[in-house]
Design a protein around this nucleic acid. Sequence first.
DNA 1: CAAACGTGGCG
DNA 2: TCGCCAAGTTT
Length: 351
Amino acid sequence: MREKTVIAPHLLEWYDRHARVLPWRMPPGTGTGDPYRVWLSEVMLQQTTVAAVKAYFTRFTTLWPRVEDLAAAEDAAVMAEWAGLGYYARARNLLACARKVSESGGFPDTREGLGVLPGIGPYTSAAIAAIAFDRPETVVDGNVERVVSRLFAVETPMPGAKPILRDLADTLTPDTRPGDFAQAMMDLGATICTPRNPACGICPLVHDCKARALGIAADLPRKAPKKAKPLRQGVAWVGFTNGAVLTERRAEKGLLGGTLAFPSTGWDGSALPAPADADWREIGTVRHIFTHFALDLTVMTAPLRGAPRRGDLLALDHFNPKALPGLMRKVWDLAAPDGLARAGASARNRR
DNA sequence: CAAACGTGGCG
DNA sequence: TCGCCAAGTTT
């Protein structure tokens, strides 16, 4: 039987004084929040920084204050609002989840019930159950893994240590205020028990921390070395008519799935032809770093004459570059000045 | 179960 | 400049 380390009361005391004020968060000790806002924030926060999420959360909750409002939204509208936040499968799952929840009259109030919904995995189901429904679930994210690996000086490298850390975290979860406890662990990891240069001097758990005692806090959790990212190449075409630009909705599955884009070759060596016969001119190259590869995308522009073979002509009046994912934003920023000028020129030349 | 899946900030 | 990292999920 493992000796049980009781840190919850002490950590909650710290949280009561130092909790970050966040748009989706109830102040410490004030009970559970709106499940819709908890869910929306948790999905947005998956692998995404608090700073990046804030504006998106405010925008989404303004446009769609209730889950029923989001459920009724157009796919393209949600994708456009999500643009720039990354991991676009989240946006597609978000809508699918909103529609299921809306149909069934509200969010399930257990980890098990939440866990079967699209886009809600082990972390998010436990987080919503604890934060929105006061269930004593153990919430394990990257922060908690780091904090626990240090508290117990777990030297097993990640990701192999995950089940070990989860079991250890389980021994810490209190029956009272589990939602605040989960958020306290995450706040501690985000502000004090940070990946590099942890601020052990002001840590409320410094006397409970085995890694600190051993002088190895900053070295945990141990991680296997990462693989190098390959560099891939491709071509993107930005075609213009006098008042429109040639765009394309990417396939639902895969990279940038469901997002607005400019026609391009595949980025794995597959050579798709240009979407239209035109006087394509190379403008330059944009580099973009994805999670598992880097991409150099050569950008071509041209005024379009006949009908394109693929893609959709989108009137410039209805085209918002902010609705593009980051890569395509870079393509647009590079192509727009020259392309618009040439399209304008060609329109004049035709006269 | 390893790999796919975005993006921006920081040291 | 560049690698690391962030409130993970899906296949």
